[in-house]
Design a protein around this nucleic acid. Structure first.
Lengths: 335, 335
DNA sequence: CTGAAAGCGCTAACAA
DNA sequence: TTGTTAGCGCTTTCAG
């Protein structure tokens, strides 16, 4: 099945009546050529729909104009927006993205890393499911690596992470602004970095405003079921709470359901802020959830930009925080 | 920033004390060489961590061992599992995947197509958000294309789609098996291909069993809100229904919530089957949803296999249906 | 201003 | 059994 041979620069040169060298210069704007020569070559290239063979180009340039993206997060909820953002800014240049899914398996990750290096990618973006930090990928001689969403444990590596603390402060801020003072936190497992960081940030922000959490953070799973259970706990204790900051939209939605079923009104009696701004959850909730959006797509773009700079010889090592945004919906401010 | 030059085959040959041609043969098992020569070359390659330069290999072979995957579905809920499946089987060989996100924009799609062809990919997988068929991508001279999840409108193209009809029949079958006879359908928009196909398949299966739908399919949005609304409608009409097949898990979850809040028990009074087996929804529902799983990851693998065959000169044109699976949970069979 | 030729790293004829 | 060489498509000196 011989693919119709794509036009080579020799074909272009022949059609334009020049040598290959001249054709190359004309197409790349190198050297100095007569204007009409350039025009003739350009025309010939156009007619033949000439596309330079990237293999040949790479062979010469020592670059592949390709970056690898290796993700640990099989589920994809977090890596997808990241990937989209990264692909967007990389594709805007002439970079393409090689995708690898390591499925949370260090062996597979190492395998993919070798494959990517074998393919001579110009750079690598590493991402994965939520966690505080991760061990750096192995030795990658001369190929820049940017960690996105979760940071490398090596502080000199380049990492871009969501500003979870800032996001949590935004949530607290917002609740204070709408007049709430008796605030509690319902979040994920205590051993989970995000859960701890966000809870503490809320507490800190309240402290700055002269308030404090009504009760220590309630830790559980990242699930609606835990949200329902936590709401039950709070109600059973008879706590006087007028707002909750939840560690995820799923938790917030569970809380909303349980409160409604217990006859409490959201937000009239209790205002609710979620985290992640995961539309499927936040919009389906009754009422729709105010939520903190980590702007993962923007984070992906930022990671891609850092990688491009590193590839261009201008690395920006260290930890970069990407700001979160507050998205206001009915669970704090009724329509 | 000169990357530490990776070892070339010349280095290997020099270290092993042979010519490059011999080294090449030794490494690729070509020609006939003395065993100890082969061993010596292999050892040298090992020591130098030699990786053949793919650009050079491509230049010679006229292949890139790369396939493009171009997705229209920005949201990613459907394309992600597909992508994972495809990446899995492609990566198992020596193929890598170039990812492109067209964001549901024909212009971007065309752009990415040109980029992929410019990169001389060996094949292309096209996927996108749910719909019946889509216009074939433009002329792709000699590069095999497989459409996954949604079919090309051109019947001679190779497409792999979920067997939605079979899935819907599974749902009906299951309800009949657990003794339900008064069955209705709540699904997505009437103009939506999947909604129509699934509803009709349920009706057909019931007809085969000598039953019929209690009421014509209820069409609405693919949302929980519509599920709640539809349940309200059914209750208001006082219909005697003992099971519902829903067009999506979201609809099913909305139905479940509304039924519960109206005092009906699921599944004791009304059994519920969803569609998509989207764990976030199906598991969070009260009760967890029995659902039809389209096995998108398997579908992605199937698409990749078809593409590999086409690349190897053995194309399988036409429409291929990938079977769906029934996943039983509490909404039809209580724990 | 243009052409000829070398070379990027590798494979595959062909010679030895 | 091994070495030599041409050539994949392109860019880039270096001559002309």
């Amino acid at each position: 099945m011989p693919r119709p041979r794509t036009a080579t620069i020799r074909d272009v040169a022949a059609l334009a009546g020049v040598s290959v060298g001249t054709a190359s210069k004309a197409l790349n704007g190198r050297g100095s050529l007569r204007a009409d020569t350039v025009a003739r070559v350009r025309l010939a290239a156009e007619q033949l729909d000439f596309r330079p063979n990237p293999a040949a180009r790479s062979l010469h340039a020592g670059r592949t104009f390709t970056v690898g993206m290796i993700t640990t997060d099989t589920i994809g909820r977090f890596s997808i927006p990241l990937l989209i953002g990264a692909e967007d800014t990389l594709g805007a240049g002439e970079m393409s993205v090689l995708l690898c899914d390591a499925r949370d398996d260090p062996i597979r990750e190492q395998h993919h890393l070798r494959v990517l290096l074998g393919r001579r990618v110009d750079g690598i973006i590493v991402t994965g499911r939520r966690a505080g930090t991760r061990p750096p990928v192995g030795a990658v001689p001369g190929v820049p690596v940017v960690y996105a969403f979760l940071a490398s444990a090596a502080p000199e590596d380049c990492s871009v992470v969501p500003d979870e603390e800032g996001g949590a402060r935004l949530a607290a801020d917002h609740l204070l602004t709408v007049g709430r003072r008796r605030i509690a936190v319902v979040t994920g497992p205590e051993h989970h970095h995000s859960a701890r960081v966000r809870a503490r940030a809320v507490a800190d922000r309240l402290a700055e405003a002269g308030a404090e959490l009504v009760t220590p953070p309630l830790h559980g799973e990242w699930s609606e079921a835990w949200g329902r259970q936590a709401a039950g706990l709070l109600l059973a204790r008879g706590l006087d709470v007028d707002a909750l900051v939840c560690g995820s939209d799923q938790i917030a939605r569970g809380v909303a359901d349980a409160l409604r079923e217990a006859g409490r009104r959201v937000p009239a009696d209790v205002a609710l802020v979620g985290f992640d701004n995961w539309d499927v959850i936040a919009l389906a909730s009754r009422p729709p959830l105010t939520s903190i959006d980590m702007d993962l797509e923007g984070l992906g773009r930022a990671a891609a930009e850092l990688l491009l700079r590193a590839i261009d010889g201008d690395p920006q090592p260290g930890l970069h925080r990407h700001p979160a945004k507050l998205v206001i919906r009915d669970s704090t401010v009724p329509a």
